[in-house]
Simulated assay, not measured.
Amino acid sequence: MPTLAAADVSGFVVRAGFLHDTPYFALGGGEVVFLAGTQIRAAAHRGGLLAADERPDGSALVTGGDDGRVAEVRPDGSVAVLSERPRKWIDLVACGPSGAVAFASGRTAFVRLSDGKEKEFAHARAVGGLAFAPKGLRLAVARYEGVTLWWVNTQGAPQQLDWPGAHHAVTFSPDGKYVVTTMQETALHGWRLSDGQDMRMTGYPAKVKSVSWSVKGKYLATSGANAAIVWPFFGKTGPMGQAPLQLGARSDSLVTAVACHPKEDVAVVGYQDGMIILCRFSDNAEVLMRRPGKAPVSSLAWDRHGLRLAFGTEDGEAGVIALE
């Protein structure tokens, strides 16, 4: 049976996860809490913490806040300010290869390179989401009416992927073949990069706020319905013409967070009432990981071994669930 160890945190959990084997909880109040034997609290921001992303090597967490700071937080509690935009809100951050960090405020996206130099990428409308490609220093910027793809180290014109509507979070498939966005409307939109082919994924009763790629990128799990909607991305046409899996269906609560396992075709599903279950893709078998709590699950993440799960909710319930 799974065992749960609660964490002593408070407020909205913006992101829960692991840096190597150390659990962390990035909190809306500006702190990052690490569970390293004892709790280590790092004051990342003077105001609210709005966004967080992990370095690809697991060495640190990069955060953005309403104090205009981009901060790097390490498990020992040390905090370094990477960049600062006074009187701006940094509500989007993304970590990329070679030490690159992207962040955004308003209509401008910035990339800070490992040597400290920064590059600006201006857009006609507000930036909705950021993501680095799995290979090469390429940045996807979600925006109104589509996505712009920038090669960070070149001066050439960016690639434009257009589709009507407001696009928010953006993600590359692990193999780099697809780009997918969540939208202001209750839908996803995707593009196959080889030829720009559009992919529409609709039918959600609520906005999609959480997405997670399965191991090897065969599936994309999403929130926004009364089950985790899991789109197949194998074959030449991706999800087009294929019905999605529906995992952990419930009639009384919407899915608010999803996280695919790093080694197996299973996913954890968090709900509006705080419940968390583990679902297997092949037969939809379920294991209860956490009973309903006081608030919606806001973040879920596996450790690198797939043996522990960090979770957080909108009102500060948080902890680590171990499968062993």
Rank of each mutant, 00 (worst) to 15 (best):
A131P: 04
V297W: 07
T171G: 05
V79S: 08
M240F: 02
S223K: 09
W150Y: 15
Q159A: 08
A285S: 15
R143P: 03
D91I: 01
D195E: 11
H123Y: 13
F103C: 09
G28Y: 02
D76C: 13
L130T: 11
S105F: 15
T22N: 00
G99F: 10
D91V: 03
T63Y: 07
W191R: 04
V215M: 08
T202F: 12
D53L: 08
D252Y: 11
Q246F: 06
V81E: 13
G129Q: 09
G64T: 10
F233T: 02
D273W: 06
G274D: 02
G241E: 11
A227E: 13
E264Y: 12
D53F: 07
R55V: 12
D315M: 11
E54Q: 15
A322H: 11
G65M: 07
T313P: 05
W213H: 13
K218E: 12
V81R: 08
A169W: 05
H305K: 14
T256V: 10
F110P: 00
L92W: 05
A26H: 09
P23D: 04
G17D: 02
D315T: 12
R308L: 02
A206D: 04
G241I: 12
K135H: 14
R280D: 09
H123M: 11
A109C: 13
K177T: 07
L278P: 00
M183C: 15
S298I: 14
V258S: 01
L307W: 01
A225W: 10
M275F: 08
F18C: 05
S98G: 06
A206S: 06
G58R: 03
A157N: 14
E31L: 13
G77C: 11
G217C: 06
G128M: 02
A102E: 12
F233I: 03
R138M: 10
K263W: 12
E317W: 03
